[in-house]
Simulated scan of single mutants.
Amino acid sequence: MKLGSKIAASTATAALAIGGVTLMAAPAQADLVTVCSGHGGAVTLPTDLKVPAGASCFLDGTVIQGDVTVEGDANLHVLGGQIDGEVTVSSNGYFDASDTSVEGNVVNSGSYGTYLEEGTSVAGLSATAAEGADNDGFVFVVDASASSIDAQVGELYVSGARLGGVSADGTEYADIFDSVVRGDLSVSGTSSGAILCDSEVLGDATYADASGPVAVGAGEQDGFCSSVNYVDGDLSVTGVSGGVYIDNNIVGGDLTTAQNSPTAQVGDNNRVRGGIITEEVAMRTMAAEVTAEFEEHEDELEETVEEMRSETVEEAMEAGPAF
């Protein structure tokens, strides 16, 4: 996947502009909130931090010893930072973290989206709908880690990540590439399908009731799923109406496919330790339009995060020093 290094370059110039700033913070005081509209450097804030509605904040090397709130229509990009509390992203807000640790959860409620990359680590990562929100939001995790992901809305895209359990229920899609899930993976009700590619699931992997295509392994193709998936527990794909493609998987438990229309295509390159309970036809090469749909997810991701990061940094730099 190509996302991390290309998008990271979009903030390099701005980071040089503020990366050398070193500030001394005042002693910690309860109930204080630092408001950020602009840019900040290597300062430790012994307070909560808030990005007010409609504002943009860019932080390079900043330590926040409290919680962070990104209000409606606000943007926050943190580079090389540390957040000791929780991050809450409100309706149409955007949160972007690179090489940053977040000790608490990242909670998206009707947000425009969250993008985590380049060694960022968070606790729980969630995305839910909010009354009156005008978008479905997204959760994109590239070369980062989270103890769990719970997505109930929008787009979920993961590449090069280390995760705990993953649940995606009613999202547009749930694409996982070259990642490790140290728990169960549960995907249901996706409208544009889901893919598991070159990854490990150290639990059960369950896909159900998708109206888009579901590809688990999906066979060896140029630049697409070049290796095998490993599922330590059971692999189950049921009730999918967008097409099912299963190949190049090592499954420690049972493999089950049922009630899929059209019937699931199951290849010869699966190795299943448990039982095989399937309604299947022989694996054929995935149609070009199916692979194109998954590739379009990545292309749209790259365009979206490049645009949002550029907008956030530009507006924050124009607003001047935040503190």
Rank of each mutant, 00 (worst) to 15 (best):
S91N: 00
R309A: 04
S126T: 15
S147G: 10
L76R: 01
N108L: 15
V158P: 03
V78K: 03
A12P: 07
T120A: 11
L301V: 11
L32A: 10
F177V: 11
S111V: 08
A194V: 07
G4W: 11
C36S: 06
T171D: 06
A30H: 07
N248P: 07
G137M: 00
T190C: 04
V106T: 12
G154R: 10
C225Q: 10
S192Y: 15
G4A: 08
I176M: 03
T285D: 13
V237L: 11
R162T: 14
A127K: 13
M317S: 11
L79I: 09
V313I: 01
E303R: 12
V231R: 00
E311S: 08
F323V: 09
E300M: 07
P46Q: 13
D99E: 13
V187E: 01
K2D: 13
A53C: 08
H39S: 08
M317G: 09
S126K: 08
T263H: 05
S91R: 01
L16Y: 13
E289Q: 14
T120S: 08
S109M: 09
Q65C: 07
E302Q: 12
N75Q: 14
I250R: 15
M286G: 03
D184Y: 03
T171K: 03
I18Q: 12
D254N: 14
Y173S: 04
V107I: 13
T47C: 09
V153Y: 10
V228E: 11
G85F: 14
L23W: 12
D136Y: 12
P27V: 01
L45V: 13
G217H: 03
A15P: 00
A264Y: 02
D99P: 00
S236V: 14
G243M: 10
E172L: 12
D222P: 13
C197N: 11
E279C: 02
A205Q: 01
V231P: 02
L196E: 06
